[in-house]
């Protein structure tokens, strides 16, 4: 199998903090790897190293077969990068932004213009293409930013939290674009804090925490790894919640979480569900909702790391160090 991205033992220190602590990554050509983790886990640092913006303190990485340190120039000619902040020149129009990149990539003036027009059209920005980017909405800027990273027809695309701060609709739009790129065979490395996003887009996932890869696999494999399915029971009468809780605890041997009027508990063996249903029936408890589902990535993350994915407090120090160094 040919790998578009290969990294071995990447280390990056900021003072005493290790932003990356020996990270290995492999992305086969044409696959989409989702890098999942909380703020400060080292996702952005990894992307910056792979996109030749940052030198690692240890380890090595290749993109498209080119070493990102020693053959940075060649690697750059294969990659596209969309960072956390829409890196567009606000004082230029959409057309000028994209045209400039085309010219920098060595296109003739007409070719750069044609490519810019094509991308504006594809990202639904044709009408706004003649306006300065500072007049664009957040979603439009992100789309322009993504378009800018595609001017050179990259073989490997880095998307660093591309939907952070976007409204749900813009997010769904952007997912559509990413899927389109996937279908065209572009290798994508996407970082995200949103488990749903990784679940929606990624073929493979690695989970970062404190500068290390703590889990990897397909979304299904990761969900299966926690070994549990999730049982949710919500009684019609809120007053029955206590009864539900005791039945579930009795049958499963674990105390369910009762937040939001629903009893939620992990199930190792789905065969116990009928027993619970019978017991509730005997007690005259009617369930408004009774379901068995696979655990979400959120629950997987919790199981793997002991803290939730959106729990930022644990990583404030690492994040602060990263910001200072960046």
């Amino acid at each position: 199998m040919r790998y578009a991205i290969q990294a071995r033992g990447l280390v990056k220190r900021y003072g005493a903090t290790k932003a990356l602590d020996g990270v290995d990554l492999e992305v086969p050509q044409g696959r989409l790897l989702g890098v999942l983790g909380p703020n400060g886990a080292g996702k952005t640092t990894a992307v910056r190293i792979l996109a030749t913006l940052l030198r690692p303190d240890g380890g090595r990485a290749e993109v498209g077969g080119f070493d990102v340190v020693r053959q940075a120039h060649q690697a750059r000619s294969l990659i596209g990068l969309t960072g956390q902040y829409a890196a567009v020149d606000e004082a230029l129009t959409g057309m000028e932004n994209l045209g400039m990149i085309g010219r920098l990539l060595g296109m003739t003036r007409p070719a750069a213009k044609a490519r810019a027009a094509e991308l504006l059209d594809r990202f639904g920005l044709s009408d706004a293409g003649g306006r300065a980017a500072k007049t664009f909405s957040g979603g439009m800027r992100r789309r322009l930013d993504l378009a800018a990273s595609l001017v050179g027809r990259p073989q490997v695309l880095f998307l660093d939290e591309p939907t952070t701060g976007l409204d749900p609709r813009s997010r769904t739009d952007l997912w559509g674009v990413v899927r389109g790129l996937q279908s065209e065979g572009v290798t994508v490395l996407l970082t995200t804090q949103y488990l749903e996003e990784a679940d929606q887009l990624a073929e493979d996932i690695v989970v970062f925490d404190h500068g290390k890869v703590i889990a990897e696999g397909t979304p299904d494999e990761l969900k299966a790894r926690t070994g549990a399915q999730i049982l949710e029971v919500r009684p019609v009468h809120a007053g029955h919640l206590g009864l539900v809780s005791s039945v579930v605890a009795d049958v499963l041997g674990v105390t369910p979480d009762l937040t939001g009027g629903t009893a939620v508990a992990g199930v190792q063996d789905p065969a116990v569900v009928p027993a619970i249903v019978r017991r509730l029936d005997d007690l005259g408890v009617v369930a408004a909702e009774l379901s068995l589902r696979r655990s979400s990535l959120d629950e997987v993350f919790l199981a793997l790391t002991g803290h939730r994915a959106d729990d930022e407090t644990t990583d404030e120090t690492a994040k602060a160090a990263q910001e200072v160094a960046a």
């Binding site: 913006l53 750059r76 000619s77 960072g83 902040y85 829409a86 606000e90 990149i101 920098l104 990539l105």
Partner: peptide
Amino acid sequence: TKGVFDRLRSLPI
């Protein structure tokens, strides 16, 4: 600060 510089530096220029 706006990230334009990163974009430029990720290009083969």
